[in-house]
Nucleic acid binder design. Structure first.
Ligand code: MN
Ligand code: MN
Ligand code: ZN
Ligand code: ZN
Lengths: 136, 136
DNA sequence: ATACAAATGAAACAATGTTGCAAATATAAA
DNA sequence: TTTATATTTGCAACATTGTTTCATTTGTAT
């Protein structure tokens, strides 16, 4: 499924900026940062439009935002093409050496035993270390 | 144990700014943001010194930094007074209504089953939802 | 082709965090 | 108590990340 089809399926407008973001994520096949996507977009990149587009793509359920720490954010394509909002919740791995991020689809987010009175709506797991390539 | 004793124990210099940060965290008995600590410090707060001090206190093992998302950071006092670096790893809860953070000391960080080749050095769990007070 | 809602891009702003450097201060030794 | 020195402070200046307003442009359905 290409960018045009993805946008149509999720009922948001097809624009060059959105297509470029989706293509970057699909081609690299891993989550990318703003700067990494910017490098792919070249002269057509505009910062304000970029932020609005990642917000729109996130809301539409096409991509997900991965916050590694207060200064590192990556965006990953959603592979749950089944329906709309069915974001399959998984952990993320961050390599401290090469700064790549991997969606660990097989590491699911569990239910936690919270103290009484606390209710969970969402949770995030960030695992930091050294990735496969960097360990070779 | 008061701020002066904590600083001496961890062998870093006793300064008014560091004492104020420690006192704020101890008095509130929960993790606080820069602005929340700033409010406690009043006129003696200086932004640059604050950042350098939280870095020094973190390195010394006196406090820990809790990154909720790319725009929300809190600092919590370490209760593992036993030795120096023995940060007992636990999950953190963030209330989306009142924005308070709670150290869930009883929710330990587990070992995850990573794909072969990946090595973990550290991991973070952020659980978001509604806290006890906000659920009443 | 037209109409209209949605998206874009410029300017201006806000929040968060860092670096270089001279002055001030905490602490240990004399 | 005074002195010496490494550490810390606070200012200025800067970098990065993200948001808001508003006029213009563009995508899409009719
Ligand atoms: Mn992912
Ligand atoms: Mn904690
Ligand atoms: Zn790596
Ligand atoms: Zn709450």
């Amino acid at each position: 499924m290409n960018a045009t089809e993805i946008l149509k399926l999720h009922e948001i407008k097809k624009t060059p900026g959105r297509i470029a973001i989706i293509n970057a994520l699909v081609n690299y096949n891993q989550p990318l940062s703003e700067n990494e996507i910017k490098a792919e977009m070249q002269e057509m990149y505009d910062r304000i439009t970029f932020y609005r587009n990642v917000q729109a793509l996130t809301q539409a359920g096409i991509i997900h935002k991965i916050v590694i720490d207060n200064t590192t954010v990556k965006y990953g394509i959603n592979h749950c093409d089944h329906g709309h909002q069915h974001q399959n919740e998984h952990a993320h791995f961050f390599c401290e050496q090469c700064h790549s991020v991997v969606c660990l689809e097989e590491v699911k987010i569990p239910e936690y035993n919270l103290p009484s009175g606390y209710k969970c709506t969402e949770s995030d797991i960030i695992i930091k270390g050294k990735c496969k390539k960097c360990n070779q």
